[in-house]
């Protein structure tokens, strides 16, 4: 496959590219996901912003 003699190493080649594509797609899909913002964290942020 792809001129690579062993299937195992062709898999390593494709998985390397696939893993990079996975990272790219994940980043695009989750581009604006800021994660869980708990009530406590919101309150802390408010407090910091008020101080600033």
């Amino acid at each position: 496959m792809l001129g690579i003699a062993s299937t195992e190493l062709a898999l390593a080649y494709l998985l390397s590219i696939g893993a990079a594509v996975l990272c790219l797609v994940y980043g695009i899909v989750k581009y604006n996901d800021s994660g869980p913002l708990t009530e406590e964290l919101r309150a802390e942020e408010k407090e910091i912003n008020a101080k600033l």
Partner: peptide, 22 residues
């Protein structure tokens, strides 16, 4: 400051590593 930066970081980091060791 938030998970958003890490999500975006994954998008840059994966291809960067492919172009280094790969």
């Amino acid at each position: 400051k938030s998970d958003r930066e890490l999500n975006r970081g994954v998008m840059y980091g994966g291809p960067f590593l492919l172009f280094m060791t790969g």
